[in-house]
């Protein structure tokens, strides 16, 4: 993809594929209406697979709609590929493939005819190559066998695939995918994730909105978490993982004794629960802790070092379970 490389070389250092500044959206005119999106400073670096996470109703889709110029921001700015939106829609959007809030096509047209329709609207594509491009896009999402079926007859997974094919009708620099694996079976989910990985390897920046943590853990290099209209955190996923501090967990019937030993060994945040004790590991050697426990006659049934997974981190960031609507 020589074009993408050329574009990459021309990028200024520190430039971002997606950038927002104090982006806010208030639905309705009344000043008392709640902010759906509240002062968002989003930065998606070029080449990243950015996991845009948040519970349903937290403002992810509103943000995406503002980025794509579908709705107007109440205040703040948004840039796609360095171009201000919505003013630069005509320059920026042909380079951006988007899947917004689920697939939507004409029910009485076939998959191919629906893609043909989308391509006919695009001033930036060459009509002479439309058949090849449609075929290759359908190929990538594995929809060739159902290409001539009416959209009405598609399963949700097929509809989702067609929408992704629509985003791949021409080469893109940025893909904004809102819940791309929604409605797909496990096999389809795997295929879409590997497609995302392939596209990312080709140099396409991907902004992946999802409420599935496993999706983020498997494919994302960066992550941003939204909660109640605000961006709670955004960083490379490794940085976020590094903030996860390991804890020791001791299973025992003599929880009080174990707690005393751990406190004595200098561990912080010792928590006693029924049949187990946990504490921050800090710089301590787990082996020595086992020695100390056993040496003190604590009947240890199980011992482990637990590193909080992303789910625990997100719960700690958003203060609630992950699938709860905000």
């Amino acid at each position: 993809m020589t074009d993408a490389t050329t574009v990459a070389a021309a990028r200024e250092p520190g430039s971002r594929a997606v950038r927002t500044r104090k982006l806010s959206k208030r639905y309705g005119r009344r000043a008392t209406a709640a902010l759906a999106v509240d002062g968002l400073d989003l930065e998606v670096p070029y080449g990243a697979v950015f996991g845009f996470l948040g519970p349903n109703g937290c403002g992810k889709t509103t943000t995406i709609r503002m980025l794509l110029g579908l709705i107007e921001a109440s205040s703040g700015e948004a840039e796609l590929l360095g171009v201000p939106m919505p003013g630069g829609a005509r320059t920026a959007l042909p380079r951006v493939g988007a899947l917004v809030e689920g697939p939507a096509f004409h029910p009485y047209l076939s998959g191919v005819d629906n893609l043909r329709r989308l391509d006919a609207v695009d001033r930036s594509t060459d009509p002479a190559t439309v058949d090849e491009r449609i075929e290759s896009a359908l190929d990538r999402v594995g929809l060739r066998p159902a290409a001539r079926k009416r959209f009405r007859a598609y399963s949700l997974g097929m509809k989702q695939r067609l929408a992704i094919a629509g985003a791949l009708l021409r080469p893109r620099e940025l893909l904004i995918l809102d819940e791309p694996t929604n409605g797909l079976d496990p096999q389809g989910t795997r295929e879409v994730r590997s497609l995302i990985a392939q596209l990312a390897a080709d140099g396409v920046t991907i902004m992946l909105s999802t409420h599935l943590l496993s999706e983020v853990e498997q494919v994302c290099s960066h992550v941003g978490v939204m909660h109640k209209g605000r961006l709670v955190t955004q960083s490379p996923i490794e940085d976020l993982r590094a903030t996860a501090v390991p804890r020791v967990r001791v299973e025992t019937v003599a929880a009080e004794d174990a707690a005393r030993v751990l406190t004595g060994a200098g561990l912080d945040d010792v928590v006693v629960a029924a049949g187990e004790v946990t504490a921050l590991l800090g710089e301590h050697q787990p082996e020595k802790l086992v020695d100390a426990l056993v040496g003190d006659g604590v009947p240890v049934r199980g011992f482990g070092v637990v590193r909080p997974d992303l789910e625990d981190l997100f719960v700690s960031l958003t203060g609630e379970g992950f699938d709860v609507s905000g």
Partner: peptide, 25 residues
């Protein structure tokens, strides 16, 4: 990325720039 390659060949280096074509498509 076969789609990209095809289009790049057809359009040369200009396929990223929006064209000002007034079409009837």
């Amino acid at each position: 990325m076969s789609a990209a390659d095809t289009v790049s060949t057809v359009d040369g280096g200009a396929d990223w720039a929006p064209r000002r074509r007034v079409g009837t498509r």
